[in-house]
């Protein structure tokens, strides 16, 4: 049986604290008008928080390589869906005189 990692209790509290601070930061940042940067910041913080949960609460940090691949492929396929679909919407009207 592969040894499952048992993390020290303190680690969970530290991660928890980071998540709460992250939440506070997003709320604060949303109050300031930074233009497009608002979105970037918001998503960056959300991604960081999600990463913390996945790595430490869900123990991916100690997971097998296969688990990393599984998780990665999930997000990668999401990216395929977003990017190819948006490639349609963002290039609409590039042919002059048409909507396509």
């Amino acid at each position: 049986m592969t040894e499952h990692h048992i993390a020290p209790r303190g680690m969970y509290y530290v991660v928890f604290l980071a998540l709460i601070i992250g939440t506070g930061l997003t709320v604060a940042a949303a109050e300031v008008d930074l233009g497009a940067l608002n979105n970037v910041l918001m998503l960056a913080i959300a991604c960081a928080k999600a990463l913390l949960v996945i790595l430490f609460f869900m123990h991916l940090r100690w997971g097998t390589r296969l688990t990393w691949v599984v998780v990665g492929s999930g997000f990668f396929w999401l990216l395929i869906m977003f990017s190819l679909t948006m490639s349609d919407y963002m290039s609409r009207g590039w042919v002059e005189g048409t909507l396509r």
Partner: peptide, 11 residues
């Protein structure tokens, strides 16, 4: 269907 021409090209 109304998909953009350039996206059609890629696909």
């Amino acid at each position: 269907s109304g998909q953009s021409t350039y996206a059609g090209l890629i696909f």
